[in-house]
Amino acid sequence: MPAAIEAHDLHKRYPPAVRALNGVSLTVEAGTIFGVLGPNGAGKSTLTRVLCTLTRPDSGRATVAGVDVLRDPVQVRRRIGVVGQKHGSDPNATGRENLVLQGEFYGITGRELRARVAAALERFELADAAGRQVRTYSGGMARRLDIAMGLLNRPAVLFLDEPTTGLDPEARALMWTYIARLAAEEQMTIWITTHYMDEADNLSGRLAIVDSGRIVAQGTPEELKREVSGDALHVELAQRDGGEARGTVERIPGVSEVEIDGRVLRARAADGGAVLPTVLAALEERDIKVASVKVSRPSLDDVYLRFAGREFDRADPVLPAGAS
């Protein structure tokens, strides 16, 4: 099967000094969910806009659903659905009117349009609210309408740009269910950008981590986590330690990256569970009291830290709001 999305060496600058894309290349296989993870301003929205034909790159090429985004943007538009960061619906129109207008924009008319609109309202549980103006919808309902609008033309590739930002946890969970079901039932390619680690981890088959306009890592969430060497050990000591604890643990075979921060000792091990008894025994031998222990599988936070070289939460936006 040909790739659903292919990008080659995309560059985009926003004058005067913002380099939003700094040589991005990637391939997304058809029928998969592809997650793009990065903090605000990393360039993931710019990348999405280039692929959706909203923005022209300064250089580089890209094809979406087999069509070149620069040479034939109109054909690309016919083959994609887009759900932007902001609501794309007209708040003064009803849910049904929004869907009808959307269909007309794709040249879908008459009975076919009415049938698709009715099915979309049903599927996204908006049938009861179809005659109400969107300004009266809850955040979750409006988001569902956005997705229904994005799907109305039965796209080959669906772009979701931060689809759950600003939603409460319940609406977010519901949205995840919809997205996962879409991928399973329609064999559609779904591109989803997010700055939530758990969202990327949960939904995407493959994942790209974007930082400062570059892709710093790519793979399945499992592969990426595997590249971060092993499990994280988290040992809380009963009292501050003068460095003895660190030295003790460092000498244990199979343990690496030992750090101490106040009373907390962190380390990595290929198999955290297996090495833990040895660690505890070694500390006990030196009479170092342990308050609590935790072993955790590497998370995408660890992956991000490793590849982007900084902690996810502390990553500063490099773009002004709006240009991201």
Binding site: C52, R77, V82, G88, D90, Q102, F105
Partner: peptide, 16 residues
Amino acid sequence: EDIANGVMERMLTSPV
């Protein structure tokens, strides 16, 4: 209004 609401971008990603 359409630009602020995201309506404009949605329309521009369609073949209208």
